[in-house]
Simulated assay, not measured.
Amino acid sequence: MVLLAGGAGGSTFAVGLRDVIAERGGHLTVICNTADDLWVHGLRIQPDVDSMLYGLAGVKDRERGWGRAGDSDRVSHELAEWGLGWDWFTLGDLDLGTHIARTAWLRGGVDVAAVVERLSARWPLGATLLPMTQAEVSTFVDLGDETIHFQEWWTRYRAKREPVAFANPGMDAATPAPGILEALEQADVIVLAPSNPVVSIGTILAVPGVREAILASPAPVVGVSPIIGGSPVRGMADVCLRVVGAECSASGVAGLYGARDDGGLLDAWLIAEEDAGEAAAIEGLGIRPVVRPLWMRDVPLTRALASDALAAAATATS
């Protein structure tokens, strides 16, 4: 099984999917967004990779949805005393340990995929975690009068400043990280997590060769809507969707991904019970709608959603 995912919601869903797949004797590979990555204090930060790593390891701060559980921020406060750092981007002490290790390996000549593998080896993740690419491809937000890094727009401004466009400099020259094309080729099921469809799943699909590999795969492709009742489950996906001209709705995101039979990606699309009224519109796109509870409020609900996604995939191939 292959999952394309971002950080917070994607890592929650990944844990449930991993558990369900493991019970059935399968294995999960996660292709994770790396376009949120940036350099801070000379350290390489990979927010989505780390959220996925901590989530699968069972050490993620579940209240915040990111970072390490039980972390402290003494180092960040000390850096602030020296006039360094951003008050809107605090790194926990345990989290900094991850960033220091990553940066030391990178500066020592270890490539990005191998670094993720080393980080993954610390805990029994029960899954294979792959960065979408080894290239340093970041997301920048064009605000019209200036361009800033995605993390500043997302974390500092909480997406309150209206963007004109998103850009990923260097994406055209990027290639999929080792193992990605093979995983997609050999997959029995491909799942699009309920992550941001523009700046998480969208950037993974923008890596040259990834979308093509999914389209060429005989595996069914199932997606889980990140929109419930016309609103994003988490984050500011509504603003991102507006930039690319897509409606903030379950059917709007389905249309953005497109139907497999029409050159798009999806065979089936899981939508919330609150959005059942959009089922006909989604079916009209050539995508099979599957109405299910989508709130991942606890472990049983998340596992049930993962089971529903796999059931939808099985139906798509029957």
Rank of each mutant, 00 (worst) to 15 (best):
V112F: 02
A14S: 13
L84A: 12
V137Q: 02
E63R: 11
A304T: 11
M132T: 00
D275F: 07
I21V: 15
G229Q: 05
L184R: 00
R44K: 05
S307E: 15
Q46G: 14
Q186Y: 09
Q151G: 03
G10D: 02
V291R: 10
R107K: 14
G209D: 05
A219F: 00
R303L: 10
A113C: 09
V189G: 07
V207D: 06
L256D: 11
G126T: 05
R68E: 10
A104C: 11
S200Y: 02
G7E: 01
A276F: 02
F150T: 01
F89L: 04
V30W: 06
A206S: 15
I282S: 10
P232F: 13
G26Q: 04
D267M: 00
H99L: 07
A206E: 05
A35V: 04
A35E: 11
V30M: 08
A57N: 00
P289G: 08
R260H: 03
M52W: 05
L265T: 01
T203N: 03
M236Q: 15
V290K: 03
A213Q: 06
I214M: 15
W105Y: 09
A104V: 12
P300S: 09
E278K: 02
G252Y: 01
G202H: 12
L106F: 08
F89E: 01
E136F: 13
G255D: 14
I227F: 01
G284H: 08
L56Y: 03
A35P: 03
S51Q: 08
H99W: 10
A313N: 07
G67M: 00
A280E: 15
A306H: 12
L184I: 08
G284C: 04
G263W: 09
A311S: 13
W105N: 03
A114W: 07
W82Y: 08
R260Y: 11
D298N: 15
I100H: 11
R122K: 12
W295C: 05
V291W: 04
G83N: 09
A213S: 09
I282E: 14
K60W: 01
R297F: 10
P178H: 11
S76P: 06
H77F: 05
P289M: 13
A206T: 04
D275P: 02
G16W: 11
G10E: 08
E278N: 02
L215Y: 05
L56G: 09
A35I: 04
A316C: 03
W82A: 14
M132A: 03
A57Y: 12
G108F: 03
C240W: 08
E117P: 04
A280V: 10
V198T: 02
C248A: 13
E278L: 01
T203E: 07
